[in-house]
Each structure stands twice: as C-alpha cells, then as structure tokens.
C-alpha cells in the first residue's frame, strides 16, 4: 500500500548524515514502501533539518517488529536513566 500518512514531530538533538553531523529539527515517521530495505512495507523515520535542505537527513527503514522493539528499548533506556532523563 501507499499509506501516504506521515507523522511529523519536532525533535531536539543531532544526527550524522552523509556530510557529517548536523542539528535536527524534525522526525518524519511513516509506514510505507521503503527505498532500500527489501520488504513490502517498513516503518521509516527521516531525521531532518528542514532549514538545511533535503540532504540533511538520516533515514532508517525498519520492519514493523524491529520498530516496535526499538520503541520498547528506547522506553527501557529512558526509564533506566530515571530522573536524569526527566519524564
């Protein structure tokens, strides 16, 4: 399918793309056809700096299972950090 649905969220931090490190402004998250992964659909996240142009992008294409596991791991890591991570 082409879900066409893109969830855009502001993010604060940095990413490393083809030209080195840059500041991130947003994460674009969507479940759709991948560009590279050899799967029918993947959970795709583009970490971007919109002001810096299309090449300021760190892209990942994850299977649905691995994306869910990543969400769990992120929550686990944040929880383990306790007060340091806020929340």
């Amino acid at each position: 399918m082409c879900s066409y649905v893109t969830v855009k969220s502001p993010v604060t931090g940095s990413g490393k793309g083809s030209a080195g490190w840059f500041r991130l402004s947003h994460a674009m998250t969507y479940f759709d056809h991948p560009y590279h992964s050899p799967y029918e659909h993947t959970l795709n996240i583009d970490f971007v700096d919109e002001a810096a142009g299309p090449s300021a992008r760190v892209a990942v294409e994850l299977t649905a299972d691995s994306a869910r596991e990543l969400v769990r791991c992120i929550e686990e890591a944040l929880a383990a950090a306790g007060d340091v991570a806020g929340g």
């Binding site: 893109t6 674009m28 583009d46 971007v48 142009g53 299309p54 090449s55």
Partner: peptide, 20 residues
Amino acid sequence: REGPDSSPDDAAAASRGAGG
C-alpha cells in the same frame, strides 16, 4: 524541485514532508 542538488531518495523524502 524538492532537491535539485540532492539524491533522489532525499528529494522524495523532502517531497513527502512538504505534502507531496
């Protein structure tokens, strides 16, 4: 137009982000 100097996959991502 979304990425004349970018790779086609980056331009496609920018196009999606801008509403298609």
